[in-house]
Design a protein around this nucleic acid. Structure first.
Lengths: 215, 215
DNA sequence: CGAAAAAGTAGAACAGATTCTAGTCTGTGT
DNA sequence: ACACAGACTAGAATCTGTTCTACTTTTTCG
């Protein structure tokens, strides 16, 4: 029953790491130094996770490494999952940036979609431990994540080529969503060691081709 | 460094609940009373999970309720997740039985596939708490689960109508797999309260139609 | 400026999963 | 029947996420 945390700030993006800030969270950003602190925390967490995976990313350890008290860590991220989500969000941001800078150039929609997914795949595989955490958080968190939507959005844009407005009920939206789901499941298989990137690519090519046909 | 557990038995099925039994697990079943014990454990766990969900299914509580020592519980199920998997496996068994008894009768493949999925969905939603556990276990366990394959197999058989042998690289296999993945993701959405059974059904119908076209 | 609120800190306390210890029970081979 | 191995039991101990307490430091603002 202490005061509601006022911390809310995220960098430039939509939902930070946590859930909808409590009732008391009226004013947006709380300060410079808090951004710093938050960033330090996320970095520390990411660094730890890159090594030993999610289990190495212990709350106590993160707090020490970030130079904040455990209580403070919990003020910023009410649960470990929130912290994981924040870390992952950072990664997705990278992917989004990368795609924007160098959009897929294949001529047909399925190929473009698959390219997006494979780039994401390779990005993830660079840090499998962290990737595992990503997938877990993406899937089992009670914490809201919007990662699925972000992935779908990337796919949608890739598939539909030239920028255009796509209505909310355009079937392509639904299909992009489905594809993103399939990809997620494939990632899980890969992380479990039951599939290679190449296998995944060829599977995605087939399903994408079917899902993205026009009529 | 105590002796390797010899327990391995499962009822009639493939992988029990645990990981590949250790090196010492040569002989199959170990005895009658162990089946009993195992069954009691799984039942106790299921009962608890049906109520308060996975968090109510505490290892101590399960062990008490099943009338075994905590250590014994851990001998049978080396982690809570293994136990969850065992419970879930039981549920899938029910679904498999149900489908076998009353196979989907729609005339086209997509409709049959969707029916299987929707029956699974409704079965799950009967016990949302347990369902949540299912999904989690299905996705993030280090424990091997084969649930995905079992779902895919059901779909495959439903889609291909009359029993036939389907080669390992038949594209339908791949497509069934994809569909099962999509369904899983939709289940997650539903459990999070972001989708209703009807919405899911209509989405599945669209994607199934696309995925299961012939050429 | 000076007081009250908000944010931080160090560290204890709690909770539930998992592990470990020491000893008892059971079944099987000889 | 005897002895040993493996399975069980009760319960303590350990580990990590999360919560709580008692203060101290900053910020905010009248």
């Amino acid at each position: 029953m202490t005061a509601e945390p006022t911390v809310t700030g995220d960098e430039t993006r939509g939902q930070p790491a946590g859930q909808a800030a409590g009732p008391a969270a009226g004013q947006g950003v709380r300060s410079r130094s808090q951004h710093q602190r938050r960033k330090r925390i996320v970095q520390a967490a990411a660094a730890l996770a890159s090594r030993g995976g999610i289990e190495a990313m212990q709350m106590r350890t993160v707090s020490e490494r970030a130079g904040v008290a455990l209580g403070t860590l919990y003020r910023y991220f009410p649960s470990k999952m929130d912290l994981v989500v924040a870390v992952v969000s950072e990664e997705i941001l990278l992917l989004e940036g990368s795609i924007e800078r160098r959009p897929p150039r294949a001529s047909d929609a399925p190929a473009r979609a698959v390219e997006v997914l494979m780039r994401a795949t390779r990005g993830l595989m660079r840090e499998p431990e962290l990737a595992e955490a990503l997938i877990r958080s993406l899937l089992l968190s009670d914490v809201k994540t919007d990662f699925g939507e972000r992935m779908s959005e990337l796919l949608l844009r890739a598939a539909s080529g030239p920028p255009e407005d796509i209505s909310a009920e355009d079937p392509r939206r639904l299909v992009a969503r489905a594809l993103s789901g399939i990809w997620t499941m494939e990632m899980i298989e890969m992380l479990r060691g039951n599939a290679t990137a190449d296998e995944i690519q060829s599977r995605l090519e087939i399903t994408a081709a079917r899902l993205l046909i026009d009529p």
